Simulated assay, not measured.
Amino acid sequence: MNSQHTVAPVHVESHLTAKGHELEPAIEALVAWSGRWITLPEPAATPGGVVPAPAPGG
Rank of each mutant, 00 (worst) to 15 (best):
Met1Phe: 03
Ser3Ile: 07
Gln4Glu: 01
Gln4Thr: 10
Gln4Trp: 02
His5Ser: 08
His5Asp: 09
His5Met: 04
His5Pro: 02
Thr6Asp: 07
Thr6Gln: 14
Val7Gln: 07
Ala8Lys: 11
Ala8Trp: 01
Ala8Ser: 01
Pro9Lys: 05
Pro9Asn: 00
Pro9Ser: 05
Val10Ala: 08
Val10Glu: 08
Val10Met: 04
His11Trp: 10
His11Met: 10
His11Lys: 11
Val12Thr: 08
Val12Leu: 15
Val12Tyr: 02
Val12Asp: 01
Glu13Asp: 10
Glu13His: 07
Glu13Asn: 07
Ser14Glu: 10
His15Phe: 13
His15Gln: 14
Leu16Ile: 04
Leu16Gln: 08
Leu16Pro: 14
Thr17Met: 13
Ala18His: 00
Lys19Trp: 04
Lys19Asp: 12
Lys19Tyr: 04
Lys19Asn: 11
Gly20Cys: 06
His21Lys: 13
His21Tyr: 13
His21Pro: 02
His21Glu: 15
His21Ile: 14
Glu22Lys: 13
Leu23Glu: 12
Leu23Trp: 11
Glu24Gly: 05
Glu24Phe: 14
Pro25Thr: 14
Pro25Phe: 00
Pro25Gln: 07
Ala26Ser: 13
Ala26Trp: 12
Ala26Lys: 14
Ile27His: 11
Ile27Asn: 02
Ile27Glu: 10
Ala29Cys: 04
Leu30Asn: 09
Leu30Thr: 09
Leu30Glu: 12
Leu30Gln: 12
Leu30Ala: 13
Val31Pro: 01
Val31Arg: 15
Ala32Ser: 12
Ala32Phe: 12
Trp33Asn: 11
Ser34Val: 14
Ser34Ala: 12
Gly35Val: 05
Gly35Lys: 15
Gly35Pro: 03
Arg36Pro: 07
Arg36Leu: 15
Trp37Arg: 10
Trp37Asn: 14
Ile38Gln: 11
Ile38Asp: 00
Thr39Met: 08
Thr39Cys: 09
Thr39Leu: 15
Thr39Arg: 11
Thr39Ile: 07
Thr39Gln: 12
Leu40Glu: 09
Pro41Thr: 06
Pro41His: 09
Glu42Cys: 01
Glu42Leu: 08
Glu42Pro: 03
Glu42Asn: 10
Ala44Gly: 02
Ala44His: 06
Ala44Phe: 04
Ala45Gln: 12
Ala45Thr: 08
Pro47Glu: 15
Pro47Ala: 13
Pro47Ser: 06
Pro47Tyr: 06
Gly48Asp: 07
Gly48Asn: 02
Gly48Leu: 02
Gly49Ile: 06
Gly49Tyr: 03
Gly49Arg: 00
Val50Tyr: 02
Val51Pro: 01
Pro52Arg: 02
Pro52Met: 02
Ala53Glu: 14
Ala53Ser: 12
Ala53Tyr: 05
Pro54Val: 05
Pro54Gly: 01
Pro54Ser: 02
Pro54Met: 06
Ala55Val: 06
Ala55Asp: 00
Ala55Met: 06
Ala55Ile: 03
Ala55Leu: 10
Ala55Ser: 05
Ala55Glu: 06
Pro56Asp: 10
Pro56Gly: 04
Pro56Ala: 05
Gly57Cys: 00
Gly58Val: 01
Gly58Thr: 05
Gly58Cys: 07
